[in-house]
């Protein structure tokens, strides 16, 4: 399911095992008159293939951290390297390219397009980044099959349960072969039985070598990850 991105030299990748995520003294400040520091000089290293859960209270800075790691937001100061690329120096277009080829997101509210079929929602992830159109449908079918939704390809998301919608979102995340999967409260809208199913799925992906960073309020969900970070007042308060 996970594929190599174009332009990456496999030999070099294997020989130089640099971290997938490398944050150095990252600060994010909002506002200029009465500035609020959402992140305060955060240092973080996530190795390739790790599954990291970030827990913390509301407003602790975990979503801000995930947005910066996902190249959706820029830090005020500090350095961020994603897969060895210094993201801080990239322009808007290059950051979009990074999101397209390296990253995938799973959101609490699924973010599926209501008037597009399940298959179209999954292929949407291949629209950007100049991926070949040939074989796109096949790859989408394979991704849906991997999350157990092969019989739902023509359904509209409105006809699916919450768990099925999140599976569609996971299939959409997987089709482009990301290096890093970012999950923002992936089980926040699901019941406990469905939550277990989604965690099983994420565990399977981790076992296949996918790097996962997941933020959650739920300690039992965080316990499924191999590494837990606790964030409080914009700083990493615990790692283990």
């Amino acid at each position: 399911m996970v594929e190599d991105s174009p332009g990456i030299d496999d030999e070099r990748l294997v020989e130089a095992a640099v971290p997938m995520v490398e944050l150095t003294r990252i600060t994010r400040r909002y506002g200029s008159v009465a500035p609020v520091e959402a992140l305060r000089s955060v240092d973080l290293e996530v190795r390739t293939g790790e599954w990291v859960a970030i827990v913390g209270a509301s407003g602790s800075g975990k979503s801000t951290l995930l947005n910066i790691v996902g190249c959706l937001d820029r830090q005020t100061s500090g350095t961020y390297r994603l897969a060895g690329v210094d993201v801080s120096t990239l322009n808007d277009r290059q950051r979009a390219g990074m999101r397209s080829h390296y990253l995938a997101f799973i959101f609490q509210s699924f973010h599926l397009m209501a008037h597009r079929s399940v298959l179209e929602n999954v292929t949407l992830a291949e629209v950007y980044g100049r991926r070949p159109r040939t074989g796109r449908q096949g790859r989408a079918h394979a991704a849906l099959s991997a999350v157990g939704l092969e019989g739902r390809t023509d359904f509209l998301p409105t006809r699916l349960s919450g768990g099925e919608r999140q599976r569609v979102a996971i299939a959409r995340a997987l089709i482009s072969g990301p290096k890093l999967l970012l999950c923002d409260e992936p089980t926040g809208n699901l019941d406990s039985a469905t939550t277990q199913g989604i965690l099983e799925l994420l565990g399977g992906l981790h076992d296949k070598g996918l790097t996962i960073i997941m933020i959650t309020h739920d300690i039992t969900v965080a316990d499924r990850a191999e590494r837990r970070l606790r964030i409080a007042d914009g700083k990493i308060a615990g790692d283990g």
């Binding site: 390739t48 060895g84 690329v85 080829h101």
Partner: peptide, 22 residues
């Protein structure tokens, strides 16, 4: 199905952004 470990790269090697006209 395995994810290769990344190496240090510059901006020039960042993933391409683009979209087919179709």
């Amino acid at each position: 199905m395995t994810t290769p470990a990344p190496s240090r790269r510059g901006p020039a090697e960042a993933g391409r952004s683009g979209m087919w006209a179709r």
